[in-house]
Design a protein around this nucleic acid. Structure first.
Lengths: 214, 214
DNA sequence: ACACGAAATTGATATATGTCAATTTTCAGT
DNA sequence: ACTGAAAATTGACATATATCAATTTCGTGT
């Protein structure tokens, strides 16, 4: 993972160029709290830009998730293979302007069981765990920004659990359809079924029923 | 909610006394990042100490969760009543040295559907949402502390979802038993069953089977 | 454009767990 | 200690969804 040289060392990658590439990330963060030029500089010097082809793996089981990656373009999914099983369980879909990592591995600093795979051609800006700690210690406003983002993900996970508590597969799908309609166009139904803890057959029957209804 | 006068205004509540009461909270935070005397002061002036009798409600549906509450002693649960249903769905158990609020309501600043109820006699230290924002703006190290705590809860929610994805009720219970054995002694089985998305009957049968096995 | 494999659909059956009901046990308040 | 109500247990039956299997549709790479 992250074999690429640091972005700033890549041939033809000067300061202006990197700034242009990571602009969506800096813009999002700037809205939360003003980024000092020094902070922007420290981020730019450490961020690694990486392009993932569709199907390419960003993380595999047994590895420690060493980076948190801001998705500039594209869409990824994370999944794992439960013990004694073959079928993957999809755990997340993440797309433009969100941060992806394996939370369990990244925060525990232990090898995880998750894959992260590009569902579409994807462009990410990654920061190493150690670089994040450096930024937290040196730039206190960076804590403000990441606190707000962490709280946002806390909220999203709470919403996800809220939906997962619904006992009927049909209700979980209806919720997904309502809240993430755009994802229905971008990811395979089998992955949505897995994400919603149902079989592809069940999802197919639910969709069949709805088609008639409408 | 929070009818009590601000702690520092309560008769007999002087600085020393409040500091002694909220010591577990300050100690936990101090371990994450050093608290300046000014920050401790600003916290102490705004924190509200409240005692909840067993069964007492800290939050009810229709209200905005205005506070985040650090549990100094005791145990609370949160739950909601799904539409067109009667049985509550237990969403969380929180005890000493953790922070409880309705995440959905607190962060959205909208009325929620959750109850928070004391399972045991409980002592909490609450901070109002606005006071939290004040502390974030004035004391940047407070962002460091709450960022770390938010990340910890992010990790915990991820673990919870990991368990909830298990299709077999027995597996979910085994996980709960392994990770939260102490909770089995402190909360009713019907609430554990609800929390694990199974009926009390199913939980009872699982426990019956295990008893024979061991 | 074509061909192949993966994805999605559809049907028949199996199963884990929910629902309803009856009893026993536990526990809190007098 | 007693008593009543809530909690927990146990049993019979219902049901949503998983599993297994066969087809059809779709999408990707050549």
């Amino acid at each position: 993972m992250f074999e690429n040289a640091t972005a700033s060392h890549r041939p033809g990658s000067n300061t202006e160029e990197i700034n242009a590439i990571i602009k969506p990330m800096l813009d999002q963060w700037e809205k939360i709290y003003h980024l000092s030029p020094e902070l922007v500089d420290d981020i730019r010097q450490r961020v690694k830009i990486r392009r993932l082809d569709k199907g390419e793996l960003l993380l595999v089981p047994g590895k420690i998730a060493s980076h948190a990656s801001f998705i500039l373009e594209g869409l990824v999914k994370s999944y794992y293979i439960p013990e004694d099983e073959i079928a993957p369980v999809v755990t997340k879909f993440m797309f433009e302007n969100s941060i992806i990592t394996s939370i369990l591995s990244y925060y525990s600093r232990q090898p995880g069981n998750e894959y992260i795979e590009a569902v579409e051609d994807t462009l990410i800006a990654s920061l190493h765990y150690n670089d994040m700690q450096f930024l937290f210690s040196k730039h206190f406003e960076f804590n403000y920004i990441i606190r707000v983002i962490a709280e946002k993900y806390l909220y999203c996970l709470e919403v996800e659990i809220y939906n997962r508590r619904k006992p009927l597969a049909e209700d979980r799908y209806a919720f997904f359809q309502k809240h993430f309609p755009y994802l229905l166009q971008r990811v395979a139904l089998k992955d949505i079924a897995s994400y919603l803890s149902m079989t592809t057959e069940t999802l197919s029957r639910i969709r069949g029923k709805h088609k008639k209804t409408r």
